[in-house]
Design a protein around this nucleic acid. Structure first.
Lengths: 213, 213
DNA sequence: CCAAAAGTGTTCGAATTACACCCATGA
DNA sequence: TCATGGGTGTAATTCGAACACTTTTGG
């Protein structure tokens, strides 16, 4: 059972003039005249982390007048899911960034805590009805990894047999011959998400729904 | 079985310079320096319709650069649910406004069709897990009215017995002595939504979930 | 008295849950 | 050989779906 982590940045930009309050910050930036909201979100993520092709979704727009004491700022928040494999490879040398467990988050400035909470709730709803979980895993993953992921998101334990029964009955996973041998002597089979199968089933009225235990 | 209607306004404001494209428009306006997004949404709704205290929810922010050919505009859409009883009383004399069935919508300008579609999908998800349906009904309503509402939102028929069984078992409705006698000789008992019961149950881990048939 | 709408229970099958042991292997 | 983590089946229960008749009353 692992936990979700939030990537925090320290003073990457300063929309606020009150420096004492600035304890931690998300990725942030200002939109340009010639780019869409989505493009701006991708640009900022890519510019500050080097990450590309990640699952990213608009979350919510925050518009209280006093949310940033330094200036009137309206922020449209996006949440990105980063593949576990990409994290260390790409983010090691980013200055001032550090991962923080969601359950032991420091005090965040402004309304950033609300942003995190809302994004997490959205994720928990999304993941029940859409296979977004696979965005967080490497191409090849074991069922144990997949279950660990779901346990982290739901913040509770799931029965192994029921979880496997349900996910496998959907026929959207492809079992590989290869085994992951790092974490156990026996080894666990790799699977991969078969997007074509998923899309085909969906056209036939199939609904992804992973609500286990 | 009735249908959802969208209230359309004609040229209330003109963010576009291309008048030929302007066929219909939602309520819209610009945010002021000293108000939040929520406040602006309420102000605009109230100013243009006279309606107050309606259920209103942020939907999504639209930010494509070319979405309005006349100017760079980022729009945060809100959707409001208006009580059936309030509609005629307050909206009769609004100039240029007319109701249009959602299933026979005219061509809308810009990305407004996407806005409607997204808002409807959000509503359909919301109404399954939150008792927002009551926002659309008068204080006192019959179970038939409530069911009609759900059938309109889901766009399908629901079994009467199963619907009543489910909604009544939640213990969030209060049966009144009074009957509605307009639509039938026998008359149908009025109910009202008991918000306190709902909040109390929710604290005890109860989840509203109305997914019938 | 009858048409029209409101109201009411039961049965069946499917889906979800709970639950415990064997397997493979490297050290 | 044994400790460690991976993998598997079945029974009990709950939940959702299907289904048809009785009640009330104004005209």
């Amino acid at each position: 059972m692992y936990h979700f982590q939030l990537l925090l940045f320290r003073e990457v930009i300063k929309p606020s003039q009150n420096h004492l309050l600035l304890k931690s910050l998300f990725l942030g930036g200002f939109i340009k005249e010639d780019e869409s909201l989505d493009e701006a979100a991708y640009r900022i993520l890519h510019h500050l982390t080097g990450l590309k092709d990640v699952y990213m979704k608009q979350s919510y727009s925050y518009g209280k007048t006093d949310r940033d004491p330094g200036a009137r700022v309206i922020s449209t928040a996006y949440s990105a899911l980063i593949k576990i494999q990409d994290i260390d490879r790409e983010l090691k040398e980013i200055n001032g960034a550090h991962w923080q467990s969601l359950s032991r988050l420091p005090r965040l400035i402004f309304d950033h805590r609300e942003m995190v909470d809302r994004a997490l709730v959205e994720l928990q709803m999304q993941i029940k009805i859409k296979p977004v979980g696979f965005e967080l895993l490497p191409e090849k993953f074991t069922l144990v990894q997949l279950q660990d992921l779901y346990e982290a998101i739901y913040q509770r334990e799931i029965d192994k047999r029921n979880f496997r029964k349900k996910i496998l009955s959907m026929n959207i996973l492809e079992k590989l011959e290869e085994k992951e041998k790092e974490t156990s002597k026996k080894g666990a089979f790799y699977y991969k998400f078969n997007k074509e199968h998923y899309e085909k089933h969906k056209r036939n009225g199939f609904f992804f729904n992973l609500d286990v235990n």
